[in-house]
Computed example of a mutant assay.
Amino acid sequence: MDEQQLSAAQLAEAGLDDWRQILGRLKARFRTGDPATGFALANAIGQAAAAANHYPDLTLTGADVVVTVSSPDGPGITRRDADLAGEISRLAARLGATPDAGGLTQLELGLDTAAGTRLGPYYAALLGGEVTDGEPVDRSGQVPTVWWQDPSEDNDGPALPAQPFEQRWHFDVWVGHDEGERRLSAVLNAGGRLVSDAAAPAYWVVEDADGNRSCICTPTGR
């Protein structure tokens, strides 16, 4: 039962206000304000993870601890993930760390190519990772994930205006379900342009002043 994937409704009922679903994983950021509190929180999380035999990924900086909870068997969030996330939130509150879900982000790099299988080993070697399901993956989390968008396959998304040049690489920037419109507004205020919102809130297509396109993606509507 603990390994059964939770539906969106079950996740909403779990009370994980500090957490967001990002690319099939639970992710949170806790503002610690100083390194000592960050190390104390990381140590407490480690003890809780050992007790649960379920280990999250941690990124510790001078002022933040970013935590990602996922199951090793693939995408999808389980009751076990949710239980550990809830315990981590309790530990953070006890230490005075403040949750900040607004800036949670995960970057994917998409390459337009029909030769992903052939190119996979090259990019895995370049990025210091390995090929998993045909795509280069860095298990250490140091570089973004890379995926292939085959231009010869049917695109289920909305038709986009033509570009005056060929762009093969694009960013997919994943944010929480409630962050998409804020991120879009920030991009537009910084000089970006909206290309299409036809698939929103699943994703918005934006471009920079030179016409290079990216997507702001959320888990909603997928």
Rank of each mutant, 00 (worst) to 15 (best):
F30A: 06
R25G: 07
T113I: 02
P219R: 00
V66Q: 06
L194I: 10
A51D: 15
R20K: 11
E108A: 10
Q167D: 12
A198M: 07
R90Q: 14
E130W: 00
H170N: 08
T59F: 02
Q10L: 09
N43M: 11
A115Q: 15
R31T: 13
V205E: 03
R118L: 12
T220D: 02
G192H: 09
C215T: 01
G24Q: 14
L109Y: 04
F30D: 02
I45H: 08
R193L: 10
T68A: 13
I77Y: 07
V143S: 00
G38A: 14
S140P: 02
W148D: 00
D57F: 04
K27C: 10
L11V: 14
T98W: 00
S89L: 03
A92L: 10
A93K: 15
R168F: 07
V65N: 03
L6K: 12
A50W: 08
G76Y: 05
A52T: 11
L184A: 02
Q5G: 07
I77Q: 10
G102T: 10
P75R: 09
G86T: 14
T117I: 00
S152H: 10
A36R: 09
A92K: 09
L6E: 12
A48C: 06
T32V: 15
V66N: 03
L11T: 15
D100A: 09
Q21Y: 06
L26V: 02
L127P: 01
G46Y: 08
S214Q: 13
K27R: 15
N212E: 05
G176V: 00
T218V: 02
D172F: 00
L127C: 09
D154I: 08
L6T: 12
A114F: 04
L184P: 06
S152E: 15
A162N: 15
A124C: 09
A202H: 13
E135N: 05
Q4M: 15
V205P: 05
H54F: 13
E179P: 02
T78H: 12
E135D: 08
L91I: 07
Q4L: 13
A186Y: 07
A12N: 12
A52Y: 12
A93T: 13
R182L: 10
R94T: 14
S7W: 11
L95R: 07
R90G: 13
V69Y: 04
L60Y: 07
G134M: 12
D150H: 14
L127V: 05
A124M: 10
R25H: 12
D154P: 14
R80C: 08
R94M: 10
F171N: 01
F30E: 01
D133H: 04
A42V: 08
L91P: 02
L6P: 13
N43C: 13
V195C: 11
M1D: 11
G15K: 08
D197F: 00
I22F: 01
L16A: 05
P99V: 14
N189Q: 15
V143M: 00
R213I: 03
L127H: 01
